[in-house]
């Protein structure tokens, strides 16, 4: 089994505060992965608001908010267990983030070993 990180992105900062129905749908989805014993890490949400998101660039330049040159920003991540990336993609497809025009990036986790 390999591990994959699912990285969630949305476009509109207003969508970061989900409705009770959205919370229920997300929890159903997440628990569905856990019920298959394929959830490695519940992950965390990442606050996109300017007071809790900064971007540091070369020459000590610090800007407010997540990286602003792209039109969307990361709001969270989880880690799942799957045989192949396609299986992880199938899990991602059932998430409701797409209704918000968001997207999910699926990335295989390469574990660092301490030598």
């Amino acid at each position: 089994m390999k591990e994959f990180m699912l990285i969630f992105r949305i476009k509109d900062i207003a969508d970061f505060k989900p409705t009770p129905e959205q919370i229920q749908e997300r929890l159903n989805w997440l628990a569905g992965i856990a019920a298959q014993n394929k959830l490695v890490d519940q992950g965390n949400s990442l606050s996109p608001f300017p007071e809790s998101a900064k971007t540091v660039r070369p020459d000590n330049e610090v800007t407010d908010g997540p990286y602003t040159e792209i039109k969307e920003f990361i709001v969270g991540y989880i880690i799942v267990r799957a045989e192949t990336i396609d299986e992880a993609v199938e899990m991602a497809k059932e998430n409701t983030i797409f209704k918000l025009g968001g997207n999910i990036e699926v990335r295989e986790v390469i574990k660092h070993k301490l030598h």
Binding site: L27, Q36, N37, L39
Partner: peptide, 22 residues
């Protein structure tokens, strides 16, 4: 009950919890 099973399965996986959740 579904909501509680969702939380339970996130704390600790077990086949019986997965089936009861379903």
């Amino acid at each position: 009950i579904l909501q509680l099973y969702n939380q339970l399965i996130l704390i600790e996986y077990s086949p019986i919890a997965a089936l009861n959740r379903a």
